[in-house]
């Protein structure tokens, strides 16, 4: 499997570790979240047959976390973004 790193170009998946569903970007603030919110964040994931946004970490590379949009049926990688950019776009900051 090849991941087309937005800064480094195509790299073998062997250099990466995978975390899973990119919904993990959306961690609720523990001071304001309800227990249910935090529970859902920690435990509940979608497992779609088709396009899936996943978090991958370039551990044996530049240590970037990436959001990889991958088709779980065909294994096609449709999009790769720096997770930091995605997180900011989706409203995360400090």
């Amino acid at each position: 499997m090849i991941i087309n790193h937005p800064l480094l170009g195509p790299r073998d998946a062997a250099e990466f570790t995978v975390l899973g569903d990119a919904s993990l970007l959306h961690r609720p603030d523990g001071m304001t979240a309800t227990m249910d919110d935090m529970h859902d964040y920690a435990y509940l994931r979608d497992n779609p047959a088709g396009l899936h946004r996943e978090l991958w970490y370039h551990e044996q590379g530049d240590r970037s976390w990436l959001v990889v949009t991958r088709n779980t049926l065909t294994h096609d990688v449709e999009n790769v973004e720096l997770a930091r950019d995605v997180a900011r776009t989706e409203g995360r900051s400090k």
Binding site: R27, Y57, E59, R63, S64, W65, A83, R84, R92, S93
Partner: peptide
């Protein structure tokens, strides 16, 4: 790895 996750994905700024 987890600290890089927190740094890049949870609190990028």
């Amino acid at each position: 790895r987890n600290m890089e996750f927190a740094r890049q994905c949870l609190w990028p700024d």
